[in-house]
């Protein structure tokens, strides 16, 4: 088990959103305020870790022909738990994330990790994988939220900081480009982020290649 490698994989070199290109729907849909991003990120970390643990426990029992259906049921169970807990204790967050909490069931990140990692590795490694991949996803969400909220609304920390959760105003009102908070902004911001990631990965590979020679 290689904790350090798993950590680096989840956060940077094999980041679920920027490199594996999974879980796009939620990444673009809910990243309008910081509160949404953090809430969604934490839910995904919890669900991903729990489902990874359970699937890794069951990996020798589940017959391989119906494994996808089994994974989905396990994931759906955890999603229901998180959904109900959130409705009970954080109703405002539950309302603003709306249909995207139950939709975590079909978030490709969770199924992909179950298939690619948890079904082949031990419990501890799978749990760590869940946590790190979840953190990688959350980091992207937070970056997207901060960019879109700052440029699109001129504030920082909406839903969390400031008066009545309106966020701290940085840009003057009217100076912001509202379209970034709209769906268009989701596509554009994520596109630029992935491009940046590809650029950085290519640069670091070139550097490594140069050292080898």
């Amino acid at each position: 088990m290689n904790v350090k490698k798993q950590f680096k994989d989840g956060l940077i070199t094999n980041n679920p959103v920027l490199v594996q290109l999974l879980g796009m729907c939620s990444t673009m849909a809910i990243t309008t305020t910081l509160f949404n991003g953090i809430g969604m990120g934490i839910s995904v970390i919890v669900i991903l870790t729990c489902s990874n643990i359970v699937i890794s426990l069951l990996r020798k029992i589940i017959p391989s022909t119906i494994r996808i259906a089994c994974y989905i049921v396990v994931v759906a169970g955890f999603v229901t738990i998180v959904d109900l807990l959130m409705q009970a204790y954080l109703p405002s967050l539950s309302e603003s994330l709306g249909v995207f909490i139950p939709l975590i069931v079909v978030n490709c990140i969770i199924l992909a990790r179950a298939e690619a990692f948890a079904s082949k590795n031990g419990i501890a490694a799978s749990a760590l994988d869940g946590i790190f991949q979840g953190i990688g996803y959350t980091l992207v969400l937070i970056v997207m939220c901060v960019i879109r909220e700052f440029l699109g609304n001129g504030t920082f920390g909406g839903g969390l900081l400031g008066q009545e959760g309106a966020g701290i105003r940085i840009l003057p009102e009217g100076a912001a480009a509202t379209f970034l908070v709209l769906p268009v902004g989701g596509f554009l911001t994520l596109g630029c982020l992935i491009a940046l990631m590809q650029y950085l990965l290519r640069k670091s590979e070139e550097k490594k290649g140069g050292e080898d020679k």
């Binding site: 596509f187 596109g191 630029c192 491009a195 590809q198």
Partner: peptide, 12 residues
């Protein structure tokens, strides 16, 4: 541009 090839340009 090279960094935008594939997915990023599709997203844009």
């Amino acid at each position: 541009p090279k960094s935008f090839e594939g997915f990023p340009i599709a997203l844009i």
